[in-house]
């Protein structure tokens, strides 16, 4: 089973891009499974189900979404395998820019959009910087020059990645992206694999449900900002 992790900032177009790729994969008669990770609520599972693919939805609720992802992804792979999927795609949003679901030896895709601004690529951490494929969306809305500038900014922070422009609405570029999916990592299990980068840690009183503000309530892994003015 070919397995890929797809991630990207909220509203960057992850679901649209995956849907367009699914259409192309289905035309080649492949069985596809999608795992959609989100925090509070998602209706995207219905969009996937409508395409006739197998869907699993995971809502992290009160937990850190990326920690929730990594504790569940192995089970998802087993689920996809048991259901005889040819392809399994996991979709998760990178909410804090420092976290990343990408796994060593598993094809990693990051979706980012042209409207997010030229400084956004440098603000996103390993989710973008360690991806194998970077998909840039919403190119139809901006000019050619702006697309080029944006792509060069992405290239600067992840020079080794394949960078593609995809239109999630018309599907322009999705066919081409699909041909990259066809050579994605082929695996049976995630046992023994490692994350490409560690996840942000906290383990402080607020992780345990503390709501009060003030020094005396802060215990555990707490870090303070430097409030001294630079002289």
């Amino acid at each position: 089973m070919r397995f890929l992790t797809v991630s990207g900032p909220p509203s960057s177009g992850k679901t649209s891009v995956i849907l367009r790729v699914i259409e192309a994969l289905q035309a080649r008669r492949h069985k596809i499974g999608v795992v959609k990770f989100d925090c509070l609520l998602t209706d995207d599972d219905a969009l996937y189900a409508k395409k006739g693919v197998l869907v699993k939805k995971g809502l992290s609720g009160a937990l850190c979404p990326d920690h929730y992802f990594v504790s569940n992804i192995e089970g998802c792979v087993t689920w996809g395998k048991e259901n005889d999927c040819d392809y399994l795609i996991s979709e998760s949003a990178g909410l804090c820019n420092r976290c990343s679901p990408h796994i060593n030896d598993i094809t990693a895709v990051c979706v980012i959009d042209n409207l997010s601004g030229v400084n956004t690529p440098r603000k996103i951490g390993p989710m973008l910087k360690s991806a194998d494929i970077v998909v840039i969306t919403k190119g139809d809305i901006v000019s050619q020059a702006e697309r080029e500038v944006f792509a060069s900014r992405v290239k600067q922070v992840n020079p080794g990645a394949v960078i593609m422009n995809i239109n999630g609405i018309t599907g322009q570029g999705a066919f081409e992206l699909t041909s990259l999916f066809e050579s994605a990592s082929d695996i049976d299990t995630l046992k023994g694999k490692t994350l490409r980068f560690s996840m942000p840690a906290a383990l402080c009183s607020y992780c345990l449900g503390e709501t009060r503000i003030g020094e005396e309530y802060q215990t555990g892994n707490v870090r303070k900002m430097d409030m001294e003015d630079n002289k």
């Binding site: 139809d140 000019s143 050619q144 020059a145 702006e146």
Partner: peptide, 26 residues
């Protein structure tokens, strides 16, 4: 190089700064 129908800009730059930035990236 594709010149599409839409010609919107989202960058907050002057025409000169914008072309300058494009030139630098090239």
């Amino acid at each position: 190089a594709q010149l599409s129908q839409n010609m919107n800009f989202v960058m907050d730059l002057t025409a000169e700064e914008f072309i300058q930035m494009h030139a630098e990236s090239r």
